[in-house]
């Protein structure tokens, strides 16, 4: 498995991570090596094996639909990069 510069750019875009141009070759090499490691899995026939998503094979617990969390909006907004009138501010999305 050898990832090209374009592959890495595509993955970085999907992951919403800005990479500098000079870093891309190193990421291409590292990621290719990691995916090579993952290729070892190919030697195993898993046609009839159920995937294991959870170590205890537990299912999600249900609870009564009642309010349990207190309102902490002020505390949460106090640590936000930019807020105004109770809203999180981001650059303008729609002109």
């Amino acid at each position: 498995m050898s990832l090209s510069k374009t592959d890495v750019e595509k993955i970085a875009h999907l992951a919403r991570i800005a990479l500098s141009a000079e870093d891309i070759p190193r990421y291409a090499e590292n990621l290719s090596n990691i995916l090579d490691l993952a290729e070892q899995m190919k030697q195993i026939d898993t046609a009839h094996i159920t995937p294991m998503a959870h170590p205890l094979e537990a299912v999600a617990r249900l609870r009564e639909d009642v309010v349990t969390a207190p309102d902490q909006r002020a505390a949460f907004q106090a640590i936000a990069p930019q807020v105004e009138a109770g809203l999180y501010l981001v650059p303008k999305v729609i002109e």
Partner: peptide, 26 residues
């Protein structure tokens, strides 16, 4: 940030170190 995409991408690109970025991308 010049727009919302730039905000996400640069905040994550600058805020995470190399190993974290590698693992997110893998």
């Amino acid at each position: 940030p010049k727009d919302l995409a730039d905000l996400y991408q640069r905040s994550r690109g600058e805020g995470f170190g190399a190993e974290v970025k590698r693992r997110i991308m893998v």
